[in-house]
Simulated assay, not measured.
Amino acid sequence: MPLSPGLYKLAFETPAGADYGVAYLTPDGRMRGGDSGMAYVGTVSQLGERITAELSVTQHRHVPGVVSALGYNDVAVQLEGYSDEGSADVVGTSRDRAGLRFRARLTQIAD
């Protein structure tokens, strides 16, 4: 079942640690969100239960010495995975950063 438009909680797991944020999925497939230091902006495509996304992750609050859980403060990422009943499990990679790989879970918290 494809993800419905709405507000989602994002839980990231990376080799550098875990992080959390929120994002809003619009009816036309745009995703906008962030956390206390990073902004997420991009698009989501869905075909049945399959989900793919292209997101720009950009630092909006600069704190000396602080790096995001992804290990980079400004990076484009690609997500691929599957959705089911208001949530999705995805794997993230980056064409810009060959070694970057992470898992994330999107869980709908409001429509």
Rank of each mutant, 00 (worst) to 15 (best):
A98C: 04
V63K: 09
V63H: 04
V22Y: 13
G42F: 01
P5N: 05
Q59F: 01
L47Q: 15
A53F: 02
D96I: 04
E85G: 08
Q59W: 03
L100R: 12
P64K: 10
A98P: 07
E80P: 00
V67C: 07
G33V: 08
R95M: 05
H62N: 11
A18Q: 12
N73P: 04
A39F: 05
T26R: 12
Y8M: 05
A76R: 15
R32A: 01
A18M: 08
T58P: 00
S45C: 04
T52A: 05
V22L: 12
Q46Y: 06
V22P: 01
E54H: 12
D74C: 10
A23T: 11
G6L: 12
A98R: 13
A11E: 13
H60R: 13
E80L: 06
S4K: 15
Y72N: 04
G33A: 08
G99M: 10
A18T: 12
G99V: 08
L100P: 10
E80T: 10
G99A: 13
A39L: 12
L25E: 08
Q59L: 13
G65E: 09
V57P: 03
G92K: 06
S45T: 14
R61A: 13
L7P: 05
P5I: 06
R95S: 10
T52W: 01
G99H: 10
R97P: 00
L7K: 15
R61S: 11
S87G: 13
D35A: 09
G42I: 02
D19K: 04
R101M: 01
M31G: 07
G81I: 06
D28E: 14
M38H: 10
Y72C: 02
G65S: 09
F12N: 05
A98V: 13
T107M: 08
V44S: 05
L7C: 11
G17H: 07
E80K: 07
P27F: 00
R105N: 02
G33N: 07
V77Y: 03
P27I: 03
S83L: 07
L79P: 01
S83C: 09
S83H: 08
T43V: 08
R101W: 00
L47E: 14
G37C: 11
A18E: 12
G34P: 10
L106R: 04
D19A: 15
Y8A: 05
L7M: 15
R50Y: 01
R105L: 01
Y40N: 05
R50S: 09
R103F: 00
A23G: 15
F12V: 09
